[in-house]
Design a binder for these strands. Sequence first.
DNA 1: TCACAACAATTGAGCACTCAAGGATATTTT
DNA 2: AAAATATCCTTGAGTGCTCAATTGTTGTGA
Lengths: 152, 152
Amino acid sequence: MNEYLDACLRLARAQALLVKRFDHQLGRLHGLSFADFQLLQQLGGAPGGRMRRVDLAAALGLTASGVTRSLGPLERIGLVEREPDPRDARVAYAALTDAGRERLQHAEKAAGQLAASVLTGGEWTEGDVPALAGYLTRLGGTGLPERPAAQD
Amino acid sequence: MNEYLDACLRLARAQALLVKRFDHQLGRLHGLSFADFQLLQQLGGAPGGRMRRVDLAAALGLTASGVTRSLGPLERIGLVEREPDPRDARVAYAALTDAGRERLQHAEKAAGQLAASVLTGGEWTEGDVPALAGYLTRLGGTGLPERPAAQD
DNA sequence: TCACAACAATTGAGCACTCAAGGATATTTT
DNA sequence: AAAATATCCTTGAGTGCTCAATTGTTGTGA
């Protein structure tokens, strides 16, 4: 096994653990999965807190079908609502509700804290996280929502 | 959004893309998903090419249930077989068949090549991959099967 | 020796997706 | 103008898991 495959396998394992931790923390405190959180975050970063579903799918790296299915439960609990486009009957927007905006704020805080707890202390030194982020960006870890940096 | 959460989100995105690429390549050439490949690899690295299912679950970071379900199709196509433990009736072993061993060899070669194509060239310089592997190890990217390093 | 806790595996139900198909609508081509 | 093609979204079916419940077996302690 070469070092490249080793790194790919490590990435898969690290991600699985990380998702588990985020799911647990966000689920416990806010009733959201990590995937839900990412979806809300993309909406939160869009103008007016709304996006066409097809754009949301592209932004999340999912299919349209996946977005439809993910939005269902979030609409039902009132975090997201559906809006038509007056000019194009094919299009439906997904928009954050006030409750959704508030839930996102709290979840973002919790997620930020969990991320900091994972990536600070112990062996993590000053340049590590930017270096890691750089490598992950090269590997396709792009398309994150534009957000003002929140300093912890 | 702080830089720690940014890195975690990038990891999730990078992984999704990587899995898609491995699934596609391994599926096309060998009829295996990336998850199937990882399972076969764990068996390949075990003494005699066999492990208790409960140990396989732990090694893969899955539940016993997940392993039972993943092994089903692989048993049906003859890559893996089930063996009882003569001393403990609770236990079932998952063992690579000859066909499974051969499939694994081919898949491992293809996976190694894909990984190399992802992580070499362009922006990747000499210390990058070991550094990335180190960070991922810290994040829980451990438990990979012991394999003699195959140099490409 | 016996009761019960721990262990191993499986199965039903549910979550989180993809792919393919299909319906409706808008755009492009003829 | 009409036909062909592209776009958007949803739904059925399938993949890949987890959790909870269940069954059967083994190990431990009284």
